[in-house]
């Protein structure tokens, strides 16, 4: 009987390791940008292609930087939550990528517009600087323009309540610093 103990412990260890691996989301790659200033950008807005917004314009208060596209089903899933957050006064900036202007505007006209401003990056240049893999992704940026947190995939109410809201609150009470 004793001789089975070692192989059993080994097997149990292996199973635990593999089970933990199965539970991980391979899309949740840790972002190397956390703790760093947002990448520099000057991008046209969705509402007015002639009007450009830069990273410096957004400084002064914390914001959620939400990357989305009109063809992205997970973004639709997330949309009602963003609407409610906007109603509660959460500052959300959108980045619309890999999209058509008309399609993106249609989505916001139909489902409501939770964004303070939507920037467009249709040549994919800025999204590479942000290290965006797939929509939706949301960054939490503080008042000084430093990235504090990154969420991959749709934000659920649980994510908001347990993780993002406390961080956002902390940034609000701490802001403006320096």
């Amino acid at each position: 009987m004793k001789r089975f103990i070692l192989p059993f412990v080994f097997l149990a260890g292996l199973v635990t390791l593999l089970a933990a691996g199965l539970g991980l989301n391979p899309r949740e790659v840790p972002s190397p940008l956390i703790g760093k200033p947002v990448p520099e950008f000057t991008l046209p807005t969705l509402a007015d292609p002639e009007f450009r917004v830069s990273d410096r314009d957004l400084k002064g208060q914390p914001y959620l930087f939400n990357v989305w596209a009109s063809w992205c089903p997970t973004c639709y899933q997330e949309h009602p939550l963003l609407m409610q957050l906007a109603e509660r006064g959460v500052n959300i900036v959108g980045l619309n990528i890999e999209d058509e202007r008309a399609d993106a505007i249609a989505v916001l006209e139909k489902g409501g517009d939770p964004y303070r401003v939507v920037l467009v990056d249709y040549d994919g240049r800025s999204r590479i600087d942000w290290g965006v893999i797939a929509t939706p992704e949301t960054f939490l940026v503080d008042a000084n323009g430093v990235i504090q947190y990154k969420h991959t995939g749709a934000i659920t109410w649980q994510d908001w309540a347990e993780v993002i809201a406390p961080k956002y609150q902390q940034l609000l009470t701490g802001a403006p610093r320096g």
């Binding site: 391979p26 790659v29 890999e98 040549d123 994919g124 240049r125 999204r127 590479i128 965006v132 893999i133 797939a134």
Partner: peptide, 22 residues
């Protein structure tokens, strides 16, 4: 990073295309 088990050369994903241009 979208398809994860392909390299950039093999991938047709939008991100891979943008990265190849870059």
């Amino acid at each position: 990073l979208v398809c994860q088990n392909q390299n950039l050369a093999d991938s047709n994903a939008e991100l891979a295309k943008d990265l190849k241009i870059e």
